[in-house]
């Protein structure tokens, strides 16, 4: 997901850059007001933890491995503001020092890997925490669902940016189906690892789990039977992935490229400047336009609402992520 330079067009890079910079600026201001100065070393060292966790492979199936993204985990452990900030620093350091992800791609990479998973994941966590029974098990379960959701949201957010900033002739609906479909499965790993990690922290230092503040933890261990949990997750996700891909594959891609080949060359020259800013390959296909915009609109609204709700929730709590 660490997209390189020029993977989305300039307009999308600038637009996402403005959104990311604004959100991070807001989180910084908020943290300065409510947090002790302890936040800087703690944030830096937990950022190192997230970075290391992203390098730490866990088994997926038959010896293949995956790794953690950690946005939702960071938000649940540290609170959404600090969580988003910490993952932002991770993504920026990866780009600058490790050439992992482009410097001009930081706008969308930070949005997709830090802001959407942290705030969106935290919003989902809040919702599931209310639905699930109170206590340790509820926190662990809500973490799993939120972590899964955060990965799917992140993939969907990228697809929507593709709608506006595509640099290759792959229509939005295909990218959406592929990205979301794959991440519905990848999310299971994220869910399992995040939930178990939060469970382990709850067992030794429950005061360090921001998301568990004010929750009576009780005596339960919060253990979920692993095999049941994983297999259940796979089945639900497969069903979800099938629906998403059906939705996207049903529409005739073929028609689109026939329509497109007419006058592509002239169009390219004429619209150099508008292309330069927003070359929306996906909406160029006539048949696809309505569907693309409909999916993008619904999903985009959903993501925006969740992220905004996560931000609002974080502001309402006004409790610092670092315990004093």
């Amino acid at each position: 997901m660490h997209a390189p330079d020029g993977f989305l067009n300039a307009g999308t890079a600038v637009a996402t850059g403005v959104v990311s910079a604004g959100t991070i600026g807001m989180a910084l201001r908020q943290l300065k007001q409510t947090m002790s100065e302890k936040v800087v070393p703690v944030a830096g060292i937990t950022a190192a933890f997230i970075f290391a966790a992203q390098m730490f492979n866990f088994p997926v199936a038959a010896g293949t491995t995956g790794h953690l993204m950690g946005g939702a985990l960071a938000a649940i452990l540290l609170g959404p503001h600090l969580g988003a900030l910490v993952v932002t620093v991770v993504v920026a350091v990866q780009a600058l020092f490790f050439a992992d992800g482009g410097l001009t791609a930081l706008g969308y990479n930070i949005l997709n890997m830090a802001i959407v998973p942290a705030y969106g994941g935290y919003a989902l966590f809040g919702i599931f925490k209310r639905i699930l029974p109170n206590g340790r098990g509820g926190i662990v379960g809500a973490t799993a669902l939120a972590a899964w959701g955060s990965v799917v949201l992140s993939a969907a957010a990228f697809s929507i940016q593709w709608l506006f900033g595509a640099t290759a002739p792959i229509p939005f609906t295909r990218v959406f189906a592929a990205m979301v479909g794959v991440h519905v499965l990848i999310g299971i790993g994220e869910a399992v690892i995040s939930a178990l990690a939060v469970g382990a922290v709850l067992a030794s230092r429950p005061d360090l789990v921001h998301g568990a503040k004010g929750v009576a933890l009780g005596e339960g261990t919060g253990k979920v039977p692993m095999r049941v949990f994983v297999i259940g997750g796979v089945l639900v996700s497969l069903a979800f992935a099938t629906i998403v891909s059906q939705f996207a594959v049903d529409n005739p891609d073929g028609l689109e490229w026939v329509a497109e080949t007419e006058g592509f060359a002239e169009q390219g020259a004429e619209h150099a400047w508008s292309d330069f800013l927003f070359a929306d390959y996906a909406t160029r296909g006539i048949e696809n336009e309505t569907l693309s915009l409909a999916i993008a609109g619904i999903v985009g609204t959903l993501i925006t609402l969740l992220v905004a709700w996560g931000i609002l929730r974080a502001f309402r709590e006004r409790s610092p992520g670092a315990t004093a």
């Binding site: 866990f58 088994p59 199936a61 690892i193 178990l196």
Partner: peptide, 11 residues
């Protein structure tokens, strides 16, 4: 080798 054996790593 399988995700449900990942508990020690996650803990």
């Amino acid at each position: 080798r399988w995700l449900w054996q990942a508990r020690p790593i996650a803990s």
